[in-house]
């Protein structure tokens, strides 16, 4: 465990001197700040920001993760020839990239909220930050898994973008199509399950239901409210997100332990 910390530490030295992390944090700061200036109250800002965040975080995490792994190939080999366990090295590399991304996002968003909001949206903001953190961890892990499984960079990047497209658009399209075609049947419960299977949808629903806009979602919205609004619903959702983060992290570790470099 001590060695995980050391690997993270040196990676932080490297990453914090890199301009892109600063730009990433600055992007969130400027967007949140702008929404407050033009959009008004905290709840509205959260909804507008949520839509941007659910789009940007998975994309940036999966692309940076893939890029990082391909670019660090020789560095990883160097560390592998030291007396360091592979599992430890993987954890260090993964957290050393995911944690700065989380920090950039959390700081970029929190500062404008601290400046403009009176604290009325604290619970929703907390849920927003938590969802963003989970999405970062999950998509970075997915990126590592994809990059480890594919020696060919072009192929690796292609798969990463495809995975992002599926979670962001294709999945929603299929669900939408299914719910229109099956509108005559009681599909609320299958819909709940379906949205749990996509972490981006899950994050969206969790945040929406915490705001006042959930009342506008009609009958389906009420069913969702009943489930996700309850403490059981929130617990199940957070656990699902945790599982969503663990699966690619475990798959990545397994691949890393067996891989030939």
């Amino acid at each position: 465990m001590d060695k995980v910390g050391k690997i993270i530490k040196y990676q932080l030295f490297d990453i914090f001197r890199n301009k892109w992390l600063l730009f990433y944090a600055l992007f969130f700061f400027v967007v949140t700040d702008g929404l407050f200036r033009f959009g008004g109250g905290g709840a509205k800002v959260i909804i507008s920001f949520m839509n941007i965040m659910l789009f940007i975080i998975p994309l940036v995490s999966i692309l940076f993760g893939t890029m990082f792994l391909y670019n660090s190939r020789e560095y990883i080999e160097l560390l592998l020839t030291q007396p360091v366990k592979r599992r430890v090295l993987f954890a260090g590399l993964y957290l050393g990239l995911a944690l700065p991304l989380v920090a950039g996002f959390v700081l970029g968003v929190s500062i404008p909220f601290a400046l403009y909001d009176d604290g009325g949206q604290l619970a929703t903001l907390g849920l927003l930050l938590l969802s963003g953190t989970f999405l970062t961890l999950m998509f970075t892990a997915l990126a590592f898994f994809i990059a480890l499984r594919n020696e060919d960079r072009a192929r690796g990047f292609g798969i990463s973008i495809l995975v992002w497209l599926i979670f962001s658009f294709v999945y929603d399209g299929i669900i939408l199509f299914a719910s229109f075609s099956l509108a005559d049947y009681p599909i609320e419960k299958p819909l709940i399950v379906a949205s749990m299977l996509n972490p981006i949808d899950l994050a969206r629903i969790l945040i929406l239901l915490k705001t006042d806009f959930s009342a506008l979602m009609g009958y389906t919205g009420a069913v969702f409210q009943n489930f996700f609004g309850s403490s059981l619903g929130i617990t199940v959702s957070l656990l699902t997100m945790l599982v969503w983060t663990m699966i690619p992290a475990i798959l990545g570790t397994r691949t890393f332990e067996k891989k030939d470099f």
């Binding site: 040196y10 990676q11 030295f13 490297d14 660090s72 020789e74 560095y75 080999e77 020839t81 007396p83």
Partner: peptide
């Protein structure tokens, strides 16, 4: 690996 010193064909380290 504590007993081994290795010099690879190509060396790359964290850029910054």
């Amino acid at each position: 690996r504590r007993q081994i010193g290795y010099m690879p064909q190509m060396a790359h380290f964290p850029n910054n």
